[in-house]
Amino acid sequence: MAYQPPKQVILLPQTQQLKACTTIIRDKNTQRADFIFYSDRIIRILVEEGLNHLPVVEKTVVTPTGREFQGIDFQGRICGVSIMRAGESMEQGLREVCRSVRIGKILIQRDEETALPKLYYAKFPPDIASRYCLLLDPMLATGGSAIKAIETLLDYGVAEERILFLNLISCPEGIAAVVAKFPLMKIVTAEIDAGLDEKLYINPGLGDFGCRYFGTDK
């Protein structure tokens, strides 16, 4: 692959079974039940990988055999932030890994007059400024709404280096746009596609993720 993502990007190990999962969710003939199931599987791996980038401290525990185990403990608290609507599809996967995690929501829509992303709604845990944020949006295309969402988080006092942006499919254009603006945050992605087409859809992509997940496509 000629494309080398910038160092802020954490690409999941491109294993065969991950490729098999993305093949299923890209296939237009995949039924919704399968789409949801295999998306959730990828999301769980994304979250598992994202959490690996949080700080830890050493911790020693005693096991039932009476011996010590040299382990670790996580430092700092986390919260999820989903960019509505598609980002909410990732909450299930997040909860399977982080049981009772707090989840904030952001609604961003394209402003009809300016054609720019506009923030319509944001609701976060009150102490979000002290937390690590897992920002959830399944597709990173132009990066427009992601940038708006990150700006919002920064407005609420979240430190840029404490943001992990999780997505299933990204592209070089979106990565470049986000990284240029926020070089301290990290992007965790399952696959990087070739680029954007003339309609600014990810190519080859998988269509509208939210519609396929929530069943609102025709």
Binding site: R26, K28, N29, P204, G205, G207
Partner: peptide, 14 residues
């Protein structure tokens, strides 16, 4: 496989 946007993807299957 074909995506909903009619792109061809060369993927893997179990």
């Amino acid at each position: 496989v074909q995506t909903p946007t009619s792109q061809t993807v060369h993927g893997l299957g179990q």
